[in-house]
């Protein structure tokens, strides 16, 4: 996983609550057996006027000009601003894969659904939780102009006209900053896991029966 770097980018204001993973990446695109290539179908049903299917040439489809992701000023944006409970619904990691493939590295929300929140970190995306009034402030700033935001994970702040600090779990923070391979990290404890298994199966022998 790439190391998370300091980011300055225009922010895409997607003014919705409860954006679910079906909206982020509709199910027909989950048939892929790859981790990449989902970007063109991010928010497919909102982004295009026609019905999307895997294998279509997305550059030839009719775009919904009113949808915020399609505004030319946000073409290279890395930051998404949303309301509460972002990423609710299914556990599909295709949702963060699609966001990442589009170029999103940071999502700022009032709250996130648990599984989605977790999935973001596994893919180098930083989900930032701010207070309701702070989110409101950011949205109102985006109403009048294209807002540029600075994100500093090391020092845990985002800065637009004002600076907002955010909380993050230390382990998750260091995983992102160092681009850690969590499986490799866990496998450093191979012996501990094997020892655990030994005593575990002697206490609960029926679980070993297969």
């Amino acid at each position: 996983m790439d190391k998370f770097k300091h980011i300055v980018s225009k922010v895409i204001p997607l003014d919705r609550s409860n954006v679910d993973t079906d909206a982020i990446i509709p199910k027909q695109f989950l048939k892929s057996i790859k981790r990449t290539g989902f970007g063109p179908n991010l928010f497919d049903e909102w982004r295009y006027l026609d019905h999307g299917e895997p294998g279509m040439d997305n550059s030839k489809r009719s775009i919904n000009p009113d949808f915020v992701l399609n505004k030319p000023q946000f073409k290279d944006s890395k930051i998404l601003l949303v309301r509460e409970n972002f990423g609710c619904g299914s556990s599909r990691e295709h949702a963060p894969w699609a966001l990442l493939d589009f170029g999103i590295k940071v999502i700022i929300a009032e709250s996130f659904a648990d599984i989605f929140y977790n999935n973001c970190f596994k893919n180098g995306i930083l989900p930032i939780t701010l207070q309701k009034d702070e989110i409101e402030e950011l949205f109102s700033e985006t109403e009048t102009k294209t807002l540029e935001i600075e994100v500093n994970l090391e020092k845990q702040f985002v800065k637009s006209l004002k600076s907002y600090s955010f909380e993050i779990d230390e382990f998750k923070k260091s995983s992102l900053l160092n681009g850690l391979d969590e499986i490799g990290l866990t496998l450093e404890n191979k012996g501990v896991i094997a020892n655990f298994e030994k005593s575990y199966f002697s206490n609960y022998p029926w679980l070993k029966q297969e």
Binding site: G89, S90, S91, E93, P96, I115, N118, K122, T186
Partner: peptide
């Protein structure tokens, strides 16, 4: 790797949905 894994909690189990990276993590490390 499915959010409705919570279903199995009906049996007094701790059951939860995980993403694909965690599926890989469990496969490799249990």
């Amino acid at each position: 790797g499915d959010s409705h894994t919570s279903t199995h909690g009906a049996f007094g189990a701790l059951a939860m949905g995980i993403g694909t990276s965690e599926v890989e993590h469990v496969m490799a490390t249990q």
